[in-house]
């Protein structure tokens, strides 16, 4: 499984990419693999307020629904509406076409508290124990 070095991660299995004051987020390779076939995604609305570690989106497999948490606080600036008609993108390209939303960060210090790829991989190993 892949965890690109340029991204940061949460313990709830979201990845985060930073471009200036904005971040894009989706779910990690580990998460998409565990969820298996994604058949439904509920994305947030543009303009919606996001609160760090609070549910902001829902992803569903054939069997169950899972919450997606906001990795940082801020305001939703863009959403991937393609996921509504083609949720399988989350499985096929979780770090690319399978992105969920873009946020304008309210507090840039929150970026620092996210995990690096190495820290995330270590946390997965801990979880597996």
């Amino acid at each position: 499984m892949k965890y690109p070095k340029e991204l940061k991660y949460t313990k709830t299995h979201e990845w985060v990419r930073r471009e200036g004051g904005k971040v894009t987020a989706g779910i990690t390779d580990y998460a998409q693999h565990e969820i298996s076939d994604v058949v439904f995604v509920e994305i947030p609305k543009v303009g919606q307020a996001a609160q760090r570690e609070k549910p902001i989106s829902v992803v569903e497999s054939v069997k169950a629904a899972f919450d997606i948490y906001a990795p940082v606080s801020g305001k939703v600036t863009k959403v991937n509406t393609e996921l509504e008609s083609d949720p399988g993108r989350v499985n096929h390209d979780c770090y690319g076409e399978g992105w969920f939303f873009e946020l304008e960060m309210a507090d840039e210090r929150e970026w620092q508290s996210l995990m690096t790829a190495e820290e995330y991989e270590n946390s997965l190993k801990q979880e597996a124990k």
């Binding site: 298996s36 076939d37 058949v39 497999s61 054939v62």
Partner: peptide, 19 residues
């Protein structure tokens, strides 16, 4: 097999994917 549970039974939920 990826395992699941059905009542008290451990059962294969899927092998490759449900779809």
């Amino acid at each position: 097999a990826k395992w699941g549970q059905f009542g008290p039974w451990e059962v294969p939920l899927y092998y490759s994917s449900i779809l």
